[in-house]
Every structure is written in C-alpha cells, then in structure tokens.
C-alpha cells in the first residue's frame, strides 16, 4: 500500500488541506509521497509528519494553470496504489486528468475513507449518502475539513524534478482578481444571506460578522439569481456548493430544498429569519425569529466581545 498526495496551494504557499490529505493517507498506512506542482510549498510539505518523500516538480508550465500541461508533467512521476487530492476545483480537474492518463478510476469529494478502499460521499448535493468500494489502484479527491490534519515535525527528503510541457491554454488578461475572502467550500464557519437581506449592499453586515469569526460568506440561490453583485461562486446548495462546516449561519434564507441539501450536514446550524414558519428552522439547531436588521448588529457585538477575551 503506497499513496501519492497531490499538494494543494493557494497564493504561492502550501494550503492547509494538504496536511489533511496526508492525515487521511497515514490512517491507511504505507509510504506517502507528496508531489508539489510548480514546487510550491515543498519545504512545508516535507515538515508534515508521516510524509516519506516530497517531489518538487518545477517548470515553466506551472506559471499559469493549464490542467493538461500540469497533468502531463505530474503523471509520469506519480506511482502507488492510491492518488489523493483535495476536491477543490483544481484538485478535481487535476486528479481526473491524471487518473484518465493512468487508466484508473477516480471518485470525487469523499468524506470518509477506509482500507480496501471503501469510501463515503454525498450525492444529489447532500440529499443522500453513498458508500462505494473502489478497486486499487485508484484516485480519490477528499473534501476539505473532513479528515484530521497530520501534525508537523516531519523532515522528509525533497527531490526536485524539472519538466517542460507545452502549454496550450494561454492566459490573455485578468478580468477580476480572485476574492480575498475564504471560499465556502473550505471554511469551518459560513454565514450566508438570502433574498431576505433586502438588497446586496446589506451583505456588508454578513461580511463584518465573517471578519469577526474568520468565516466565509455564502448566499442562497435566490440571492445569487436576484442580484448580480452576489457571484455564483458564493452559492450554497444544489447547483452551487455542498458544504459541511462546523457552524452554518443562515440569515434571511427561507430554506428551499436545494439549499437545505447543500448545507444540512453542517455540524451546527443557526438560522435567523423573521418568518417563524420558514423551513430553514426545520434543520436549525438554533433558530432565532427576528429580522436581520435587529439580529445582526447584536450578534456582531456579542461575538466580538466573546472572541476578544
């Protein structure tokens, strides 16, 4: 049994989900190789406990993102019974491309993994749970925050490989910078707004609370469809993102079936809605019947006070 972990990076540094991928691999046993596209974060990857070896893959093709070029560079260097990646957008694309190149099956967005391999994932955006058995060798992407991180303190050897693959996808110009906010699919706390927020400018109240909590800001489909200021990347639910944070705060969201599917597996749910009959209260651990105008300032003050101590 041996595993290759494709590391995840963000803004030029190693993303913490990489330690979760190593943690998942460690529970299965056997040597663990971490492969770092573009060499990003390779020295930090070597410090993750349980890592046997780090391969830092460097080359011009990693300056921009071309899935095929990255996959062609990485695939020949990847061996073993199991390939793991994060189920981020790039993680999914890369592992799909690599698994196809190798002719092995891929299963995405797995939330628990056992020997053999037996994997659990949600389907229909959380309306059902599926358990599958997968023949080895195979490739699996794991959902962020579903696996315990491996600790630090390791000192794996790093080998550097230079590759040069032709890039077919040329970036012509940047249209808008990536949001500096945490993405809902990676956050441990999410605060989401619905059409009950009245107008998109009022999402600033959610942003303020998110800043206090270190949370991501999400939105219901109704909000995304109604206001173009609220991008689709914030949408939680079916046709958006399925999330499982520790705490999900729903504000002015009535709770359509598609939204509930995407967030009901959150560990704890706090709903704030002025309509006591709103379906969101049916899945909420804590429900507050109130307008957001009354509730949010009080919530922000209370949280700020608690977290400053």
């Amino acid at each position: 049994m041996s595993t290759t972990v494709i590391s995840e990076s963000n803004n030029g540094i190693l993303h913490p989900v990489t330690a979760q991928l190593v943690g998942a691999a460690s529970s299965l046993g056997g040597p663990i190789t971490v492969i770092c596209p573009g060499g990003v974060g390779s020295s930090d990857a070597a410090k993750i406990s349980g890592v046997t070896k780090v391969i830092s893959v460097e080359g011009e093709c990693f300056e921009t993102y071309d899935c095929s070029a990255w996959s062609k560079s990485l695939s020949p260097l990847i061996e073993g019974d199991l390939i793991l990646s994060s189920s981020s957008a790039i993680g999914r694309e890369l592992i799909s491309s690599i698994s196809a190149t190798k002719g092995i099956p891929v299963v995405q967005d797995v939330t628990s993994l056992k020997d053999g391999f037996s994997a659990t994932r949600t389907i229909y955006s959380g309306k059902a749970i599926e358990e599958v058995s997968i023949s080895s060798p195979c490739a699996i992407s794991l959902r962020p925050n579903s696996f315990e991180s491996a600790e630090g303190g390791g000192s794996a050897e790093i080998s550097t490989v230079n590759v040069s693959q032709e890039v077919a996808v040329a970036v012509k110009r940047a249209l808008a910078k990536a949001s500096e906010r945490l993405d809902v699919s990676e956050a441990e706390i999410i605060i989401s707004g619905g059409r009950g927020m009245g107008e998109p400018a009022n999402f600033s109240h959610l942003n303020e609370i998110a800043d206090v909590l270190g949370a991501a800001v999400g939105a219901s489909r109704a909000a995304v469809d109604t206001w173009e200021e609220i991008p689709h990347s914030m949408q939680v639910g079916q046709t958006g993102k399925t999330v499982t944070p520790n705490l999900y705060i729903a504000v002015g969201i009535s709770g359509a079936i598609q939204h509930l599917a995407g967030m009901r597996s959150s560990k704890f749910i706090l709903a704030i809605n002025k309509d006591p009959e709103a379906p969101i209260f049916g899945v909420a651990d804590y429900g507050i019947v109130s307008t957001w105008e009354d509730a949010l300032p009080a919530l922000k003050d209370q949280l700020a006070e608690l977290l400053s101590n």
Binding site: K127, A128, I269, V283, A284, G287
Partner: peptide
C-alpha cells in the same frame, strides 16, 4: 445509499 441523518428539532428563540 442512505438518507442523511434526520435533524432533531432544534431550540427556537424569539427576537434579537
């Protein structure tokens, strides 16, 4: 295949 665990009815509060 299984259904996600049913949520127990939570605690409800009135007003801010």
């Amino acid at each position: 295949h299984s259904s996600p665990p049913e949520k127990q009815p939570g605690q409800k509060f009135i007003g801010s």
